[in-house]
Design a protein around this nucleic acid. Structure first.
Lengths: 183, 183
DNA sequence: CGAAAGTAATTAGATTATCTAACTAAAATC
DNA sequence: GATTTTAGTTAGATAATCTAATTACTTTCG
């Protein structure tokens, strides 16, 4: 009769709450009629956000990496020669603090996916690069990444996908402007 | 000449990377043409997710609460009498472990926003309820919540909003189904 | 009945991803 | 050459989670 042996469970687990009750709550508490529609839309976004990354990290976990760490590796992959990459530049581009980058690099370096080298020109600086093993990991992770992305929208019709893309682009533009994100 | 006094900054901070270079990377690495369009769309979602919650927590922070904690309070607010709310049921509905709920409740209880009471019928169980102060907080937080939601989409035309809502609902449905979320 | 099994909540200890503030060492400026 | 600025790291914190073990009840079943 028991389902999960010694693991935690309730006799008849309540379903995780969907978005509907929240919308009802909003109807009772949102100030104006006009606000409601856009709040509804915004709520959908917040809701989606909650679930989208879960899906991504679940797919990536067999590779032993999370999205935020993969992100740093992607940055190194995207970097085409020229100016070397420094922890500071990574921090700027990821929008996090240098101290946080140090932690990420420690983790990635321990696994031999990136390497650090002191700059000759300015000995305060560190040049960060991705190792061949790191590239290999990225090579494995990308298809997972893309197919997870794709699967999120796979049951939409082409027209819906087109509409969705237009809308999401617009949203993205808006949010990037708001947060001051560059190219 | 210095901009931020003793704070951390780079002489000319590289812009935080937008979505475009990632899309280019995908073009180089995604297997098939057909996958690309949907991957593009999915990537937009992942991207949005990254930024949406930031916006929300920034707005909520003056109230001294974060979205995930507010979520628990909303659950208690939504609860209309009947069966008492237990930590287990909260865990199920929030989709997290009971141990995590314990931590959230400790935090909320310390601030007098919720209270715990041992059940008479089954003395293993705890009944959780929101205090008047908790209700007051929710009362203040909700307008912030809704207006942040609304502001995310405020510069769309009505038609765009309509299209967006349709699309996001569809996405939401899909994701809820996938994760087994109930009403 | 009373022992064994099941359940609810908590505790202890860990992880991930962040943060701020203080520190070290090097470079630039005046 | 002393001061200031910068790059990176360290130290220590927080939030939101997790798993495993523990405690205290309740239920079940021989």
């Amino acid at each position: 009769m028991s389902r999960k042996n010694n693991k935690e469970f309730t006799s008849d687990p309540l379903p995780k709450l969907g978005i509907t009750p929240y919308l009802e709550l909003m109807d009772q508490t949102a100030p104006k009629e006009t606000d409601r529609k856009s709040a509804h839309l915004g709520l959908l976004m917040v809701w989606l956000r909650d679930h989208v990354l879960d899906a991504m990290d679940v797919e990536l976990s067999p590779l032993g990496i999370t999205e935020s760490k993969l992100d740093l590796l992607l940055l190194l992959t995207l970097h085409n020669g020229r100016e070397p990459v420094t922890p500071s530049s990574l921090a700027d581009r990821l929008g996090i603090r240098r101290a946080s980058v140090t932690a990420l690099l420690d983790w990635l370096e321990k696994r031999k996916w990136v390497s650090r080298e002191q700059s000759e020109r300015d000995r305060r600086m560190i040049h960060v690069s991705i190792t061949p093993e790191g590239r290999e990991l990225v090579h494995q992770a990308l298809p997972v990444f893309w197919s997870t992305c794709a699967s999120l929208v796979s049951d939409m019709t082409p027209e819906e996908q087109k509409a969705a893309e237009h809308i999401l682009n617009k949203l993205n533009e808006r949010i990037e402007k708001r947060l001051g994100v560059g190219r």
